[in-house]
Design a protein around this nucleic acid. Structure first.
Lengths: 242, 242
DNA sequence: CGTTCGATTGATGTTCTTCAATATGCGTGG
DNA sequence: CCACGCATATTGAAGAACATCAATCGAACG
């Protein structure tokens, strides 16, 4: 696969911000001209170590990136999944010592953007600062919905909800559709995102395959009966704040 | 109980922001002079309805306030607990239609601060904008930790962790200590925060009472053996970003 | 004095975990 | 080219943590 240029990656980031914030042509221009270092990723590659100060933010260019929290016994909980155009840890701009980690969950690429440059933009263009803040709020909305599902939904609801969410997010950025998209995760990743074991994820996938024609093969998701999946998930997309 | 003045409530909010952001005397002055409407709360009182546009933010003055997500079947998951000095939904300033709700979990008071005033401060004082953003990042860090516990920790770990967290937060704002503080929640609230049933919360409280001399009576928490509690919780306060 | 809210306890059920084994594809080195 | 290790997926059986259902009890309150 051809690696997208740094600029086209930043254009995707801009389009994500523009989904919820009005930014001027000038602001667009400075955003897409941000400098950054392109990094090819492999599955399992650590991008941010929990508790370590970072001086750059991680823009997903290609593939899927996860934010995770690590328990004392080594178990992981993936708290956020990031797809192309997402800045996985914009949080680190105002708070450079995150308690969580960031890891590549598939092969792909990320653009490492220096905090100094991002802070400069925030200083010069207040609207960009508000757009970044707003992006953090959207992230919090997704975190809260994920927490609610972890606390109160059973395995098939949780899995169905995650698939509905990812479908909507991929469609929103123009990659695939709600019922067909690339999600290069292993069942073990799904387990870590859903607070389940891989065994149970495997069985729950089988269940959803029966109930709504779900196929999850080689990182491609195809959903034959999206309505049925959304019903199982009780999916209401308003929390995506689109 | 005497209701604190609007100004002393805003001073507590300022001190919270000042824990993580450097703000000038000028910025402090305009923050504590924010206008707002003081509201006495009763347990169960709705402050923000999910999905409804709001034009004010909710500063906790006294008592405990919860952010929650409601499932299709009516079950609730409390995603955040807010104590005096917390702005429960600063998020609504850049995103005025939250997907979540806000509810008073005890008698107390909140100050309702108009978005227009908060936005004006953000426009005029960029450092205040960054401080608000940073506050949202801290909120996201707590959300992520909560999600990780919901996904990967058992009942006693989750309950112990919540108590450790609240103790640290109360101590940080000068209300009580880590091992003794007022937490006027019912066991049913704890259940909604921990993703458990009230029955199981009750039994888990009994367990922690045995194992670390925990007392939770009439909304007062007393912990005899804090080290033991923290050990059960695998508590590491770094995610509080203090 | 009845009602409501909250706490508590017991008995039973179920979802999910744990442990274990096997299958399959893929890259890599011999 | 084949052998081997490694990652991923799959399936079965047994066990544990938590939910559900149901009942009681005390305190606060109108």
């Amino acid at each position: 696969m051809l690696t997208p240029s740094s600029k086209s990656a930043l254009e995707r980031f801009f389009r994500r911000l523009a989904l919820r914030s009005n930014l001027s042509a000038q602001e667009q221009a400075v955003l897409v001209e941000l400098p950054g270092r392109m990094i090819q990723t492999k599955r399992g590659q650590e991008l941010v170590i929990p508790g370590k100060i970072v001086n750059h933010a991680t823009l997903v260019v290609d593939g899927v990136v996860g934010r995770y929290d690590q328990m004392a016994d080594g178990q992981r909980q993936i708290t956020a999944l990031h797809i192309p155009g997402d800045m996985a840890d914009l949080h680190s701009v105002p708070m450079p010592r995150p308690a969580w980690g960031v890891e590549a969950l598939s092969t792909g690429a990320v653009l490492s953007v220096p905090h100094t440059e991002l802070r400069r933009l925030v200083d010069v263009y207040p609207a960009i600062g508000v757009a970044f803040w707003r992006d953090t709020v959207v992230d919090a909305s997704l975190l809260a919905k994920g927490a609610a599902n972890l606390g109160r939904a059973d395995a098939s609801t949780r899995l169905a909800h995650l698939l509905c969410e990812m479908g909507c997010r991929f469609e929103a950025i123009g990659l695939g559709s709600t019922s067909r998209f690339q999600l290069p995760l292993t069942q073990s990743h799904l387990a870590d995102a859903l607070g389940l074991t891989t065994v149970h994820v495997n069985r729950t996938l089988g269940l959803l395959k029966q109930r709504c024609g779900l196929m999850f093969v080689d990182g491609e998701v195809v959903i034959e009966d999206w309505e049925a999946l959304a019903a199982i998930a009780s999916f209401d997309p308003s929390y995506l704040l689109l």
